[in-house]
Computed example of a mutant assay.
Amino acid sequence: MPSTVLVTGGAGFIGSHLVPQLLDRGDTVRILDNMSRGDRGRIAEWSGTGRLELVEQDVRYGGAVHQAMAGCDEVVHLAAVSINKSEADPYESVDINIVGSNNVFKAAADHGVRRVVFASSASVYGEPDTLPMSEDGPLSPLTPYCIAKHTGEQLLAYYARRSSLTWFALRFFNVYGPGQKPTAYYTSVINHFVQRLRNGEPPVIDGEGAQSMDFVHVHDIARAIVLALDAEGARANLPVNIGTGIDTTVAELARTLIEAVGVDVEPRFRPRDVLVSRRAADISRALDVLGWKPTIDVRTGMQDLVDHEIG
């Protein structure tokens, strides 16, 4: 049956890919967003369906959150301050990412919401000792953003014990795709490489380029959220990794983007000591609990990004 879904931060990057999927399946969507980075043109387009409402408010205001929550069956909590901004302004990060999340989860519990899907992050793991990174592995959040994501998971568990709501905390790995700001933390290296390539210059890689990330396309992220909304309650109340399970090194990324842009250059390596960090998700739980697996490989996804967005 169609549901009424509240999506906090729904006018942002991930929301721009999630909301159309919710509307396509017949849901009514209520977006709560302060519109500091939201796309009003897209909101106007969605409003044409007659099944979308924008509540221009901030998750830090508990009364506004409670009012927006009334009548909702499900909640997707995306609103957050980014990882790089959290270090520049820890106070704002705690205010939005912890206090704001608590407001959302408390209101969901009070209003009898069935399911909350929380946009958590692979950053809760910190620097991994082994790959792939499992949900049951050690957690070592290193920044206010990472600490807030871990705290959000714990708050969800707290409210679930005291109400009828069920939840999933989806630990997103390195999300990328059309619509993402070029200054976003995990796409800055992509944007830098593409800008140089389009100027006929080789990408410059620190060290040997062995540092890696698990890049997951935003379309697959949106699919995972929809599946988490629909998953059986008996399988809920868990964190779930959402990645590809493949760690793509910076050197591999550079060569993929060279091919996507279509230039004849070779990467240039800059001798420099770097702290080699690697990330790859264990996604067996996502397949088992949600029936989810990625559908867009890095090569295809980077070509999509180059074709549509960066330039």
Rank of each mutant, 00 (worst) to 15 (best):
V265H: 01
T249P: 09
A286W: 09
A260K: 09
S284Y: 11
I242H: 06
G262R: 12
V263F: 09
S284G: 13
D282E: 00
V263H: 12
V265K: 07
V218P: 03
E232I: 05
A224P: 01
E259G: 09
I242N: 11
I283Q: 00
I242Y: 14
R255Q: 08
G245T: 03
S277C: 05
T249N: 02
V263G: 07
V274L: 09
A286H: 01
T248N: 04
Q211N: 12
G262I: 08
A260R: 08
I283S: 00
D247K: 14
V240S: 14
V250P: 00
A234Y: 09
T256Y: 10
E232L: 09
A254K: 10
V250C: 10
V263L: 15
I242E: 07
R279W: 11
E266D: 04
R279I: 00
R235F: 02
Q211I: 02
V265P: 05
T244E: 08
H217M: 12
G243D: 13
D220I: 10
I225A: 03
D273R: 11
L227T: 02
A224E: 00
V216W: 11
D282K: 01
V261F: 03
D273P: 00
E252G: 12
D220F: 11
Q211K: 12
I258F: 13
G245C: 09
V263N: 05
A236M: 02
D247W: 13
V276P: 04
V216G: 15
T248P: 01
R270T: 08
I242K: 10
R285F: 10
V226L: 03
D220H: 09
P239A: 06
D273N: 09
D264L: 08
I221Q: 05
S212A: 14
Q211T: 14
F269D: 10
